[in-house]
């Protein structure tokens, strides 16, 4: 196939670049608009000669696989390389011709729109940075709030114990039982146990003298007998 437009002048006059690219990267045909846009000669060549290095990678690793698998790609942004070395930002629509193992590309230059989009992208990046920063701040705030809440819970518990300790406890003047929860009279020990006061066991010097005098035991010795009743 010749490397110019098969339809001759009609396709050459279309106001967008057109080229037909084989799966193996050979440019099979171009129209006059594309040649004017890129400064490319009409002779056969590889698609790589029309692409910047970045676009070559993008074409090979992403565009070609997608086009091969799906048959169509639309609104693809790419930079072409002008014969004089300059870059041409373009939008592409691509259609694969499965029977012929090639694809048709429609190419529209987007110089001005490209500049506008670059500005938008720049603004977007700034906004994303700010949004990330504010997300970090919100995380820090939520950690601080959690710490505050756990401190508050501890304080509430201490406060409850203090309140209990400060209550006036009615005591029987004869048997020394106390009027505890639900107005029940109970032993002071029982009352203390059920009201979250931690109790430990020991033996005071008076009781040691009273109960262990015969044994000659030290009250701190672990083998002391069980206290009576």
């Amino acid at each position: 196939m010749s490397a110019t437009s098969p339809a001759g002048t009609e396709l050459d006059a279309v106001p967008c670049g057109w080229l037909r690219v084989a799966d193996d990267g050979r440019i099979l045909a171009t129209n006059a608009t594309l040649r004017a846009l890129t400064g490319a000669a009409a002779g056969p060549t590889q698609i790589e000669t029309l692409l910047t290095p970045a676009s070559r990678i993008y074409y090979q690793v992403s565009l070609f696989p997608s086009l091969r698998l799906t048959g169509a790609m639309d609104e693809i942004y790419l930079t072409l390389r002008h014969a004089d070395g300059g870059e041409i930002p373009v939008l592409l629509n691509m259609r694969r011709r499965a029977d012929e193992g090639c694809s048709d590309w429609a190419v529209v230059r987007i110089e001005q729109r490209g500049r506008w989009e670059a500005e938008l992208l720049h603004a977007k990046r700034i906004a994303e940075d700010e949004s990330r920063a504010s997300a970090r701040k919100s995380e820090e705030l939520s950690a601080a709030k959690q710490e505050l809440e756990s401190t508050l819970a501890e304080l509430k518990e201490s406060n409850w114990m203090l309140r209990k300790a400060a209550e006036v406890l009615p005591t029987c003047m004869y048997c020394h039982r106390v009027k505890g929860d639900r107005a029940q009279w109970q032993s002071a020990i029982e009352y203390l146990k059920t009201n979250a006061i931690f109790l430990s066991h020991g033996c005071c010097p008076d009781c040691t003298a009273r109960f262990f005098a015969d044994f000659g035991l030290d009250p701190d010795d672990k083998k002391i007998p069980t206290p009576p009743g």
């Binding site: 910047t52 290095p53 970045a54 676009s55 990678i57 993008y58 992403s62 609104e75 693809i76 942004y77 790419l78 930079t79 989009e117 992208l121």
Partner: peptide, 20 residues
């Protein structure tokens, strides 16, 4: 290797401009 660093930056730029 075939590429210079600005080429890779250019690739990242192309990817960003094709956000499909």
């Amino acid at each position: 290797g075939g590429f210079e660093r600005p080429d890779i930056e250019g690739l990242l730029d192309l990817m960003e401009k094709n956000p499909s």
